[in-house]
Simulated assay, not measured.
Amino acid sequence: MTQATVSAPTTAPLSLTSGRLPRFIEPAAFAASLVVVAVVQLLLGGFEIATWLVFSAVLYLIAIGVFSSIVEGRRKATDRVVRGLVTSAFVLAVAPLISTLWTVVSKGMGVLSWSFVTQVGGTAFDADTLEVVATPGALQAIVGTLITTGIAALISVPIGILAAVYLVEYAQPTNPLRRAITFLVDVMTGIPSIVAGLFAFSLFALIVGPKAFSGFSASIALCVLMIPIVIRSTEEMLRLVPNELREASFALGVPRSITIIKIVLRTAASGIITGVVLAVARVVGETAPIFIAASFTDNFNADPFNGPMQTLPVMAYTAYSFPGQDIDASQAQAWGAALLLVILVVIFNLIARIVAKVFAPKAR
């Protein structure tokens, strides 16, 4: 009996890897796309930066998709194209911010100086030369901004935090009052800022008369905008506190109020303070409600209960929209006020970052 030998068919080994484009293909393809689109635009007799960038991005996505599908396969090509789309979306989102910052800094640095920050600006009539002399200065606007925003924060922060504590710690999900407060907070979050200014001016006009312009009136308008932000941010931070901490405190016989103060609020202190500072940074640049409620003035006024008060956003708006005889000087002063406002917002955001790190539970 002979044993038949069966020979196994010879097959090529399966390849677990496919071809791969070199690492420099993406920047090289994008650079080539920039060159090609630029040459085409110059041949057509015109060159626009926005059109150049948009068509270069489109050409790059097409080129990288074709090359990758030929060498690496369809799945890798899809990955590269989607990554290119995400990067393009990021660039489109950041470009307006960078452009705005560059415009404000480039035009505001020319007028920004120590004297501009420390002296009161305005216009005065020179009897000798019979000319109206404009003095650059933003001290009255800086003081007015800090006063109105500070009063708004002093009113809004306790109300917002206490309302959030009630919604999270005391009110039941089926409580009608809780539903009403949540609905009103959602409505107030999307309310136009000019409506808040009209509300504050109408309220004080009924109390003190038609000449109701004051810094306190502007602060009330900012409170309408700031309270829902504080409530929503504080509510979310309180919900992140684990229920085990509350239950452990209750198991030790600690009352609910002490548990909230000592355990819940201290655990969420970092997020709460960050939300408060960001809410302040949000309302400090409002123009419409302050313009309606506090009006504007070139005189220095540090009394929030008496007379109009100047702020940085209103100063930038009025100097640019209603320039004096020297239009260039008025516009320069507007850009200087805008730059000061940007610096103030950056300071608030840095304070929020520092406070978040200091009061974080891990740091303690």
Rank of each mutant, 00 (worst) to 15 (best):
R239F: 13
P192R: 04
L92G: 05
R364S: 11
S193E: 09
T145C: 10
A356T: 06
V86E: 10
A319L: 10
G197H: 06
A279L: 08
F300E: 02
V241N: 06
P136H: 06
V104N: 00
I142C: 09
R83S: 14
V143E: 05
S88M: 10
G45P: 05
S113G: 15
N301Y: 04
T10E: 13
R266N: 13
I64W: 00
A212C: 10
D326E: 11
F322D: 13
F125Q: 05
T297C: 10
T78A: 09
V81L: 08
T267Q: 15
S219V: 06
I231C: 07
F116G: 01
L350R: 02
G19N: 08
F67L: 15
T145L: 13
R364P: 00
P176H: 07
A205C: 07
G73P: 15
Y166I: 09
L167H: 06
Y320C: 01
V86H: 04
V185M: 12
L167V: 04
P242L: 10
I181T: 11
E72C: 02
A293E: 09
P9Q: 14
V37K: 02
T189Y: 14
N306K: 15
D126S: 09
A28N: 01
V346H: 01
V133D: 04
G336N: 03
V94Y: 03
